[in-house]
Amino acid sequence: MNKLNFTEDQQDCLQEIINVAMGQASDQLARYLDTFVYLKVPSIEQVSSKYLSDTINSEAQSVAVVSQGFFGYEGIRGEALLMYQPKDSDRLADLLGYEPDELSVEEQIIDLSSILTTTFLNVFASQINNQMSYSAPRLLFSSNSENKTSSQSSISEHIEHQSFNWDVALKVKITYQVTDYSFNCDMVLLIPESAIINIAAVIDRILEEY
């Protein structure tokens, strides 16, 4: 858990932009899902690729992880990981407004992930006068998955098996809570090293404007 290479002003500014985006996103989600959505104050930190699986694993024994790439102007890009715990998926279909037999659990998880990611990042992007595009969300790992190989029993193993071409990443973790459905999930935005500098530039511009 490294300290950010951001100045205090930069970090405050980023925190503020994220807070505002969270507020608007939770409002939009509440209206769409027709239930109160609570977003916990995010943690912002820098992680090194070596410790990524530790960081993620210490937070949750996730049973499903969905990845969705995002990219905007000015070199803002990264990957959003949505992490679910075992009991979280019980009433997802209900929450999403589908009949349970209309879609598989995996599809429910992917669908919700996409909604959470894009809703938040769209607002975030508009805060910094940007516009995001997204890749299709992908289930990286699921303990329900039929074609899972028996050697992979957790997300950290999944991540350990990969080699990365980045050393440090900016990590923003936001926890979503839908109390009416006793549902929780974590959204972890990871912004690779090469894009952090672009974020810093955007923040500096915003700071100048104030």
Partner: peptide, 9 residues
């Protein structure tokens, strides 16, 4: 409603 893109794989 959310003015956002959605996917189906």
């Amino acid at each position: 409603q959310l003015n956002t893109q959605s996917f189906c794989s």
